[in-house]
Nucleic acid binder design. Structure first.
Lengths: 345, 345
DNA sequence: GGTTGGTCCCGAAATATTTCGGGAACTCCA
DNA sequence: TGGAGTTCCCGAAATATTTCGGGACCAACC
């Protein structure tokens, strides 16, 4: 019997409890693969029970600069770029190295997350931030098993029961504010051009839109509500469709600035003046909004702050601390520019 | 005496040779600071003599994917984003992790590059790419000393004698092509709105501009040539200045798309129609060019390919291979859109 | 000059990790 | 059905790392 029951747990203590030798426990801790699954489980249980921390773990917790991964699910430039800036700028301040990678959704789903997590562990990366990506439970577990903190910015799918920490914006409130702005101007025929029907954030914006309409007693119309993708092309297609209706809308609420860009393009091609003939509101508040003609009224997300909050959160998690709330929502703000006006008389 | 002279060196062998204990050797290898400098030196010598490699070193040297750093200097959005995309996309393909950081020029100059290099070494990062940054000899040496490969994309300063590998675009040829396009349309009063006077790439574009003018026998005017920064604000200021001349230009060649954006803004405010009253050519070929009104004629740089080439280069260097050429220039291409036309009659 | 209270630096001992050989279990053939 | 080959997985022994106590040295203060 190596040590008394009272004393600080040591590798040998764990080994005795699990009924294996010390080397075997060491292998489990370091993720070697020459340990049978059953044995690994027994050892894990013993580790948990005794709350054992290896000296190496103790070291990486204290000294050395932190290092985390950042995965960008590309969807458009400006949006993720702003978040990236928020993260990178803050990372410099708090002395954290950020490993950035960029994946299309289907490429990401084909990646072996177990191997990824293993690689992170090896080079001492202790947390990972996903930006607008779809996360499955399996992927999540790969990181969880190795005590790697996971945080998602603007998750595409609703969090699974186990849950992960996430950072987002007040999409519902933002959608409501945008729509109420249009209602205040006197519009009643307001279309909503959304992103992917499955995207949480787009759905929340849609519900904000619906809530605003219902709050004012304006009837909603199915043919005014379209889903698509968060890009200019999709925005152009959707606006062509909605403007071809017998009773076209006098205002369009686009669920992203890029979608709004498509709306402006189509409006120009049809000789519709914005905002005189058609009002347009975007969402995101990217620098794009200042470069369009006319400049675009948009619901601004605090993208850089979201990045900062995400980094702060994942660092906390990786230190084993709890977050105040598993989901943080930062406030959006409606910025009125020149693309909205009262409807034509 | 632990082992015979023949056998593979072991920590104890080294310790005996250095006249210290095994733990002390271990500390030297792992960079602990509780070893006197004199002792450290003796141990280092013994390590070198016996060619000892710790098992941990053996592991990380052989297996594990490559990892490099990427430093973004100018963060004006589209330009660096495109390069970043090129690098990240390629990095996924060749299985390389990229540690991205972003610094303003003066923040970068205040960083302790020795410490940076040391950190890179520790976590096994073997190369570093700078994007549009100013590099001093000292900084360069910090990396060189530790056998970390350095490569610069679009260097701001001309390479020092020792030299570093770099990747850029054919700025001179691009400047010449843009100017010749305007000359072909019949313009003779052509202004050049440059970036920082010290920036290599801007200077090269200027010389291409001058070469084109001289080639056609058009006299150059000092008051048509301005320097500034690569952003919209600087472009707006410069174009106000040049348009206020007694004999304002009929065409403006802007050394970046963002500068051109400033030109378009000012032209709009003054009621000048582009291209009817004023032709504008940009440089970079960022996605911006498709979003302006009118769409912007621009000299496109193969930004994503430049990123790819840079990554490929730095990986080669870090493997100890030689590059074919220390400076690679990728071809630019003039893309004519709607912002250029013959001068007003 | 002695005492005190530091800091620095080393190595014995404690602890952790890796190597490597071999037993058990599981094929695959003849 | 029973070797021969193969794979998997464990632990003894070899090796490496960390902890921790104490000697050496130094300065400051009685």
């Amino acid at each position: 019997m190596p040590t008394t029951h009272r004393s600080k747990p040591i590798l040998a203590t764990v080994a005795a409890l699990a009924g294996v030798s010390a080397p075997t426990v060491s292998k489990v801790i370091n993720g070697r693969d020459d340990v049978a699954d059953a044995t690994r489980l027994r050892v894990q249980a013993a580790l948990d029970e005794l709350g054992y921390r290896s000296p190496m773990q103790r070291r990486t917790r204290s000294t050395g600069p932190a290092m985390i991964d950042l995965v960008i699910g590309v969807h458009d430039g400006a949006y993720s770029m702003e978040i990236l800036r928020g993260i990178l700028d803050f990372a410099v301040d708090v002395d954290v190295d950020v490993v950035v990678s960029s994946y299309t959704p289907d490429k990401l789903s084909r990646v072996d997350h177990d191997e990824w997590a293993e690689r992170m562990k090896e080079s001492g990366r202790s947390g990972i931030i996903f930006v607008t990506s779809e996360i499955t439970i399996d992927q999540l577990n790969a990181f969880h098993r190795r005590e790697i903190a996971v945080l998602v910015i603007d998750p595409l799918n609703p969090p699974p029961p186990g849950g992960y920490a996430s950072v987002g914006a007040t999409n519902w409130a933002g959608g409501k504010a945008a729509t109420e702005h249009l209602l205040d101007l006197g519009h009643e025929r307001i279309a909503f051009l959304g992103g992917p029907a499955a995207a949480e954030c787009s759905v929340a914006r849609l519900h904000g839109y619906l809530a605003a309409l219902m709050g004012r007693g304006v009837t909603t119309r199915q043919d005014y509500i379209l889903a698509g993708a968060f890009n200019q092309k999709s925005g152009a297609e959707a606006s062509r469709e909605v403007l071809a209706l017998d009773e076209p809308p006098t205002a369009i609420f686009a669920a992203s600035d890029t979608i709004a860009l498509g709306v402006l393009e189509v409006a120009r091609n049809r000789g519709l003046r914005v905002p005189d003939d058609l009002s347009v509101v975007g969402f995101d508040g990217t620098p794009l909004t200042e470069q369009t003609l006319p400049r675009l009224t948009s619901v601004a997300q605090p993208l850089q702050e979201m990045g900062r909050a995400a980094l702060r959160g994942v660092l906390r998690l990786s230190r084993g601390e709890q977050l105040d709330s598993s989901h943080t929502e930062l406030a959006t703000e409606l910025v009125v520019r020149e693309s909205t006006a009262p409807p034509p008389v």
